[in-house]
Amino acid sequence: MQTFLTDGRVEIDSNNVENLVRPIALNRKNALFAGHDEGGRTWGRIASLIETCKINGAEPFAYLKATLEAIANGHPQSRLDELLPWNFRPSS
């Protein structure tokens, strides 16, 4: 797309976005050395989740703790969107 040609507010490059996703990509690549295929996939999922927390301003440990507790306490599947990192609100 060439939106930046018609809208002066749009930046020509995507450096900001690239800088945000770089840690996610690096963690996924590091998962290749986990020693086992399934271990690598699991590591990649967790690393992606942690980096997504950071991008959305959620402290990863607090997010994971609260989310796992909510699931263990019977959080309804119909409301899973509430447990996504960008919807997380610490309860303190």
Rank of each mutant, 00 (worst) to 15 (best):
I46P: 01
N16D: 08
L32D: 13
L20A: 14
S14P: 01
W43K: 09
A34S: 15
N73F: 02
N73R: 10
N30Y: 12
A62G: 03
N30P: 03
G39Y: 13
P90K: 07
R79N: 04
S48P: 07
V21C: 10
G40I: 12
S92Q: 14
I24P: 01
R28P: 01
G8H: 15
I24E: 00
D13M: 02
S14H: 05
V21W: 13
A25I: 15
A72R: 15
L84K: 15
I71K: 11
R28L: 06
I46H: 07
K54I: 12
A62N: 11
N56A: 06
L32F: 11
G57N: 03
E69I: 07
T52N: 11
I12W: 15
H75G: 00
E38G: 04
T42N: 05
R89F: 00
S78V: 02
E11L: 11
W86M: 09
A34E: 14
N27C: 08
N56E: 10
A34H: 07
H75C: 01
I71A: 08
I46E: 04
Q77G: 03
L64M: 13
L68E: 09
A72E: 13
K54C: 09
N73Q: 10
N27H: 11
P60A: 03
L20K: 15
I55F: 10
N56K: 09
A58W: 11
E51V: 03
A62C: 06
F61M: 06
R41L: 14
I12S: 12
E11C: 12
